[in-house]
Amino acid sequence: MKLLIASAFLLGGCATAPDADPRDPWEGFNRGVYRFNEVVDEAVAKPVATAYRDGVHAEIRDRVRNFFANIGDVFIGVNNALQGKFRESFDDFARVTFNSTLGLLGIHDVASDMGIEKHNEDFGQTFGWWGAGQGPYLVLPILGSSSVRDGLGLALDLYTDPLGEVRPIDVRNSLLALRLTGARADLLEASRILEQAALDKYVFQRDAYLQRRRSLVYDGRPPRERYEDDAPVNREPR
């Protein structure tokens, strides 16, 4: 496994970017890791996720998703507080409270039914909220699209992950594997659509990731971006 990763890095290092994108100065390296990830995905993650989706009833998959989402809400609340969004943070902890009790340890998302909406936050977004730029785009082994900022955020996310505290170790590992499997299963359709839509999957996925993260930092309301080549040139008059 380590050897594979190392060779993917080496392969990536040799490739040179034809058109260097300023947001992606390490494109050659990133493409190498991307290829490695695709091989692992095809060989392991996708087949396991497909079997999970086809073999486990949708309702049970919903419960599993809710269970992990409830644990996730704890640090979503922490991150909202770190961003000074105390109303949202309060909602996040209210969600955890209701879902952990009335929702039977989180398997039912009763909070959403009560109108307390789920949020999407992590340490990468908190850094972004305080003004840190993305930094160069970065493809992480196995974990996929990221950036220098979001990679550091992810390290903190993983470090503070409540699941990491679960003992015995094999129970923790089973939970982590289940969470990953469910997450990949939820992305099966999206990855199929990406496959269809993209001329160059790497570029399409990178640009979608950067757009998505920017939008998330602004909680879905980013200011309009000015591209150098944004101008609707020669656009027919409406």
Binding site: L199, D207, A208, E225, Y227
Partner: peptide, 10 residues
């Protein structure tokens, strides 16, 4: 916007 990089690059 997502197609723009691909189109311009090509």
């Amino acid at each position: 916007a997502n197609y723009r990089t691909e189109f311009n690059g090509t």
